[in-house]
């Protein structure tokens, strides 16, 4: 385990691309987290001034009336949801990392040098876990800082959504890893990931009953960390940590790992 971690860290930490994307990620997520309340408020205000007749209190006015998003438990949810928006950047880090192994033919070389095919997969799973833990920590730190002015609510009230976020990310990155093993070229993988997220899954969802389509990968991720804006309207304030969704995502991850191994075994690395 330590050996695989050392191998992967050598590959990752000395890559310029890795630091650029990580830097970009932090530079996007941190300022936006601090501006989030103003952004939501400003957005609602501007719809208000357009002269629309609001039949219910606007989001902006709810914020003004002291319903801040920077309070536990809501802040956990908002920051998790915000981080979820930028998950593509983390996927790009992973995609470049994995497809490099094909373009430099190092995957093949590593097997030749004595890595087993399972070790190849566990090494990349370590990268996925590291990236997920990294953003998990960022969400925790940001939420703790932003939620500091909360009233007497317990800090860990509503923390379960951050766990749901962690699982959704592990799942999302495993999905990206599977695409890499299958398609091997970074441009291809990123293109297909976009196409799948924006078009293909929506088309499939359309054809299927909702009881099934809710378990399609991107729908599942959306359900694990749902849009928190309903909180503003005072509805459904207690987020429901769904064991079913976590369970389904674990089944997916197992399936992706099995497929990755099957492709390696079939000699996908050799060509």
């Amino acid at each position: 385990m330590i050996r695989l971690l050392k191998i992967e860290l050598n590959k990752m930490l000395y890559s310029k691309v890795f630091w650029i994307i990580i830097g970009l990620y932090v530079l996007l997520i941190v300022p936006i987290a601090f501006q989030l309340e103003d952004m939501i408020g400003g957005f609602s205000m501007s719809t208000n001034t357009n002269g629309q007749e609001a039949s219910q209190p606007s989001m902006g006015s709810m914020l003004v009336s002291g319903n801040s998003i920077y309070k536990f438990p809501a802040v956990w949810h908002y920051i998790s949801y915000l981080a979820s928006w930028f998950k593509l950047l983390l996927a790009i880090i992973l995609i470049i990392n994995v497809t490099n192994e094909y373009s430099y033919k190092t995957l093949r070389q590593n097997i030749i040098d004595g890595m087993s095919k399972w070790e190849v997969i566990w090494a990349k799973e370590l990268v996925i876990v590291l990236l997920s833990l990294f953003t998990f920590l960022i969400v925790i730190i940001l939420s703790l800082i932003l939620g500091i002015n909360s009233d007497d609510v317990s800090i860990f009230n509503g923390f379960s959504i951050v766990f749901a976020y962690l699982f959704s990310l592990l799942f999302y990155l495993n999905f990206a890893y599977f695409l890499c093993s299958w398609l091997k070229r970074s441009g291809f993988v990123i293109g297909i990931l976009f196409l799948y997220t924006l078009v293909i899954e929506n088309l499939i969802s359309f054809k299927l009953p909702e009881s099934i389509s809710q378990y399609l990968p991107m729908n599942l991720i959306d359900s694990m960390v749902p849009n928190p804006v309903s909180r503003l309207l005072g509805q459904d304030v207690v987020y429901d940590f769904s064991i079913t969704y976590i369970g389904v995502s674990i089944v997916y991850i197992a399936l992706f790992i099995a497929l990755n191994h099957w492709m390696l075994k079939k000699g996908h690395a050799g060509k």
Binding site: N10, K11, Y104, K105, T106, R108, Q109
Partner: peptide
């Protein structure tokens, strides 16, 4: 087959 962005030494560490 080595990583182009890594030094010879780091490649050999892997």
């Amino acid at each position: 087959n080595f990583f182009g962005y890594l030094s010879a030494e780091r490649n050999l560490k892997i």
